[in-house]
Lab assay of single mutants.
Amino acid sequence: MSIQHFRVALIPFFAAFCLPVFAHPETLVKVKDAEDQLGARVGYIELDLNSGKILESFRPEERFPMMSTFKVLLCGAVLSRVDAGQEQLGRRIHYSQNDLVEYSPVTEKHLTDGMTVRELCSAAITMSDNTAANLLLTTIGGPKELTAFLHNMGDHVTRLDRWEPELNEAIPNDERDTTMPAAMATTLRKLLTGELLTLASRQQLIDWMEADKVAGPLLRSALPAGWFIADKSGAGERGSRGIIAALGPDGKPSRIVVIYTTGSQATMDERNRQIAEIGASLIKHW
């Protein structure tokens, strides 16, 4: 067993022997301040990774656009098919120029040779490549099948209805392509620590998230040296922004954090800054 596999296998073990965790309302004060600064709703939840206990939450059962955070769930569904012998990570998928959609920095470079399922998941999570996500959605049967996968996990809230990039439209009061912070946090925890996926697939999923290259201005910008984070960000229309993450000190994750916002007129930089400040408060009061 590799060191990384050992780390993920012992996530519940280490967490069980940690000192009790206590909620700190100071972080919620910052979440509410972010709402004021952005002029928009902000949803927040913080779960203990081992027990699933909610440590703090704000608007945990209000719907927010998922945006690209759905790509972690998508690759979880792909990995479940791999575990069941219905898919192979090494299978190569070929596609054409007509398949390319807006923001496809990886797939646009491989029109000639195609990409493997493993490479597509890596591109979808680490670079948020939209064509990679659409190609992977095709392998599982489309958005409705991802929703069905989530329902089978016990998540009857999260739903995907459309493809990239239309799913980022974020129309107010439109339930399409949305989740709730509580539902997303619980589902992410199941994917990373539950028995739904094999140990190898859980490790692969967290490795992809740990290698995320496009979430630097968010929670990662607030992390002290030595902290662990595996995350996936999302951005959408109407001032929408979000991030889902597993993080913790001492090089291992111990909490799940989900943050979503929508309806702001603020710039992307300002949305990023507010999420980073929430992260800084979380870490300060850990």
Rank of each mutant, 00 (worst) to 15 (best):
E26G: 15
T27M: 05
V29I: 14
V29T: 15
V31I: 12
D33G: 10
E35H: 02
D36Y: 11
D36K: 15
L38Q: 06
L38D: 06
G39C: 08
G39W: 07
A40M: 08
G43N: 02
G43W: 01
Y44M: 09
Y44I: 07
L47P: 01
L49C: 06
L49K: 04
N50E: 13
N50T: 14
K53A: 14
L55C: 07
L55S: 06
S57L: 08
F58L: 09
F58T: 07
R59L: 03
R59I: 04
E61W: 12
E61H: 15
E61M: 13
E62I: 07
E62P: 01
E62T: 09
R63W: 05
R63Q: 08
F64T: 02
M67T: 12
S68L: 00
S68I: 06
K71S: 00
L73G: 07
L74S: 03
G76A: 13
G76T: 07
A77Y: 15
L79Y: 01
L79I: 05
S80R: 15
V82P: 02
D83F: 02
G85N: 11
L89N: 05
G90A: 13
R91G: 05
I93N: 04
I93F: 07
I93G: 03
Y95E: 03
Q97D: 15
N98Y: 15
L100M: 14
L100T: 05
Y103P: 07
S104I: 05
P105F: 05
V106Q: 10
E108M: 13
E108W: 09
L111E: 08
T112D: 14
G114R: 03
G114L: 03
T116K: 07
V117F: 05
L120Q: 01
L120M: 09
A123G: 06
A124E: 03
I125C: 08
I125F: 01
S128N: 01
D129S: 00
D129N: 00
D129A: 02
D129Y: 00
T131D: 05
T131I: 02
A133Y: 00
N134F: 01
L135A: 06
L135M: 10
L135V: 12
T138S: 13
T138P: 07
T139Q: 15
T139G: 11
I140T: 07
G142M: 03
G142P: 00
E145K: 14
E145S: 13
L146H: 01
T147A: 07
L150A: 10
H151T: 13
N152V: 12
G154D: 11
G154C: 06
H156A: 12
V157Q: 12
R159A: 06
R159K: 09
R159G: 05
D161I: 01
R162E: 04
R162Y: 02
W163V: 10
W163F: 10
W163L: 09
P165R: 06
E166T: 11
E166C: 13
E169Y: 09
A170T: 08
P172F: 10
P172T: 11
P172Q: 11
N173G: 13
N173W: 13
D174W: 02
D174R: 03
E175L: 13
E175D: 14
R176Q: 10
R176T: 06
T179I: 06
T179F: 04
A183V: 14
T186H: 15
T187H: 05
T187L: 09
R189M: 15
R189Y: 13
L191G: 01
L192W: 08
L192M: 14
L192A: 07
L192R: 01
G194S: 14
E195M: 09
L197A: 06
L199K: 15
L199T: 14
A200D: 14
A200G: 15
S201V: 04
S201K: 07
L205V: 06
I206Y: 11
W208Q: 01
M209I: 01
E210P: 02
E210N: 09
E210R: 10
A211H: 15
A211R: 15
D212M: 04
K213F: 09
V214D: 02
A215H: 04
G216E: 07
G216V: 06
P217F: 08
L219E: 03
A222V: 15
A222G: 10
A222Q: 10
A225L: 11
A225E: 12
W227T: 01
I229R: 01
A230E: 01
D231G: 05
D231M: 02
K232R: 05
K232W: 00
S233R: 00
G234V: 03
G236R: 02
E237T: 12
R241D: 03
G242Q: 02
I243S: 03
L247E: 04
G248D: 02
G248Q: 00
P249F: 05
P249Q: 11
D250G: 13
D250H: 12
D250T: 13
K252V: 12
K252S: 12
P253I: 10
P253G: 09
V257P: 01
V257T: 07
V257L: 09
V258S: 06
V258I: 15
I259V: 12
Y260N: 02
T261W: 04
S264W: 05
Q265M: 14
A266H: 14
M268W: 10
E270D: 15
R271G: 08
R271W: 05
N272V: 04
N272E: 06
Q274M: 13
A276K: 13
A276T: 08
E277S: 11
S281N: 15
L282S: 06
L282K: 03
L282H: 00
K284Q: 11
K284H: 14
H285C: 10
H285P: 01
